[in-house]
Structure formats: structure tokens, C-alpha cells
Design a protein around this nucleic acid. Structure first.
Length: 261
DNA sequence: ATGGCTTTCAAAGAAAGA
């Protein structure tokens, strides 16, 4: 059994105590973090190691930054998207070994995109194309692959508190959803939707307007698994509890369980 | 409603997030 979680922490500097508390309560095999908002030099290696985890880190000052914390030593670490030049630190990929096999784990902080008519949206489209190309190669080399992260894309109308009102706005556009489907067509599956889930399940809520209390959120943090892993997924859940913390991240963890690994 | 709230950088308020 291997448990993998993804969590956009919106500043690891601010959220480190919450991450350590969460790991103590949820001793997953790997925790993928996004939006570290710190450089590698400022990464809390000692504290993470004391909690029993290795760290593969791809930091950046002020914005972005991703890391994979893992019980076993990561190997074949790749930072950013192979074949796509990017100045921003958004992807880190590792291989994790288990007694009965290995998993290629890709952790991404996908581009936000701001608005559908913006330059940032154009960057989002190019970035998604680059990711798709790199994943095609990764999948050719690794049958057991998991892609997690903050996708900044709602997959369908179930993933948003206001499907009609937000139609074709950022995170809801056909162009973004087409890119998500392109990942699915590479042979990946949305692990969350393999199971019955509560209605109005979200992974992000705006800090403003009591959005969490009113459950006005989006499901934009995802776990995708390759075909060889699909039948091994025994659960996939969103843990809303950390959103109730003092000074919470606006995102919460999503956890997947892989049986027989 | 060009908002709201949070974080960074840096020292006031802009930029960015989603």
C-alpha cells in the first residue's frame, strides 16, 4: 500500500508547522507540495528530515516552487518540463521504490492563467502543451505513473460552485478542459472520480467572502494515474480539515491510496 | 465592483493568486 498526497501550501514558510502536523496525523509515503514561495536555500530540510522524510526540492524566490517529500529516497529527479524552457519552478518528478515495484511521481504547479484573453493564459496553453509532450515520454518509460498537483483547471461542471456563472472564465474554459482531456487521452485517469464522492467536493476556496464556510469552491487539485495503476487505486479523498486551521492555505490536501504497491 | 483576502518584498503599496 502506497499513499500519496498533494497540497498547495501557499508559502511553506507560513505553513511548515501545519505541514508537519498534517504529516504526523497522515503519515503518507509521499507528500507533493506546491507554491513553496521560497528558494532551495530556505527550504526546511532539517525539519522535514526530523519528521522522517526525504526532500526533493525545486524552489524559487517569491513565487511558485515545488517539492516532493518521501519516506524512501527519491531517484531520477527531474526539475521542470523536459523540452520546455521555463523560467518558473513548477514541476518536479521523482521515482519512488517500493518492495514490489516503483512509481514515477510527477508533481506540478500548473500555470494559473489569470484571464482567457491574457498573455498569462497564452503561457498556460504553451505550458500545458509542453507538459503533455513530456508526459508522453514519461509514460512510455514508466508504466506506473502518478501525476498530481494544483492543475488550476476544473475538469467539468461538478468541480465548481457556479458552473453557469463562471462558464468560460479562468479555470473553467473549454481550452483548459481540452488540455486536461489531452492528458486523459495519454492514458491517465482522474483518481477522484473512480469513486462515489460527496456532492460539491472542492479542493480550493477563496480567502474572501467566507467562501469556505459557504462552500463556494473549486476542485482544481487533481491526482491522475496511469492505466497500470488505475486498478490499484483503492481510495482518493479530499481532506478539508486543514482549511479550518488558523492561517490556512486556500487549498487542501488530496490523498490517493494505491493497493499492492 | 477595478472589490473582497493572503503572501511576498520591503517599508507603502503593487503584484499575483484563483
Amino acid at each position: 500500500m502506497m499513499k500519496i498526497a498533494t497540497w498547495n501550501v501557499n508559502s511553506l514558510t507560513v505553513r511548515l508547522p501545519q505541514v508537519l502536523d498534517w504529516l504526523a496525523a497522515n503519515p503518507v509515503d509521499a507528500l507533493c507540495l506546491q507554491e513553496l514561495k521560497l528558494t532551495d536555500e530556505k527550504f526546511p530540510f532539517k525539519e522535514i528530515e526530523a519528521a522522517g522524510y526525504h526532500s526533493a526540492v525545486f524552489g524559487q524566490k517569491t513565487y511558485n516552487g515545488v517539492a516532493i517529500l518521501s519516506r524512501t529516497a527519491p531517484r531520477d529527479v527531474v526539475k521542470n518540463i523536459t523540452g520546455f524552457a521555463d523560467e518558473q519552478s513548477r514541476v518536479i518528478t521523482v521515482t519512488l521504490d517500493s518492495p514490489v515495484g516503483e512509481v514515477r511521481l510527477v508533481n506540478g504547479y500548473f500555470v494559473n492563467g489569470q484571464a482567457p484573453d491574457s498573455e498569462k493564459f497564452e503561457y498556460k496553453m504553451r505550458w500545458l502543451e509542453g507538459l503533455q509532450n513530456a508526459l508522453r515520454d514519461e509514460l512510455a518509460n514508466h508504466a506506473q505513473l502518478v501525476l498530481v498537483g494544483d492543475f488550476n483547471i476544473t475538469v467539468d461542471d461538478r468541480d465548481t460552485y457556479d458552473a453557469e456563472g463562471l462558464r468560460e472564465t479562468i479555470h473553467h474554459t473549454s481550452a483548459e478542459r481540452a488540455h486536461f482531456q489531452a492528458l486523459i487521452e495519454l492514458g491517465l485517469t482522474d483518481a477522484f472520480r473512480l469513486f462515489e464522492q460527496p456532492e460539491k467536493s472542492y479542493s480550493w476556496w477563496d480567502y474572501r467572502e467566507f467562501a469556505f464556510r459557504r462552500n463556494r469552491g473549486l476542485r482544481i487539485d487533481h491526482v491522475l494515474v496511469s492505466q497500470a495503476l488505475k486498478e490499484k487505486v483503492s481510495s482518493c479523498v479530499i481532506d478539508k480539515l486543514p482549511r479550518k486551521n488558523e492561517r490556512p492555505s486556500d487549498h487542501v490536501p488530496v490523498i490517493v491510496e494505491l493497493a499492492g504497491i
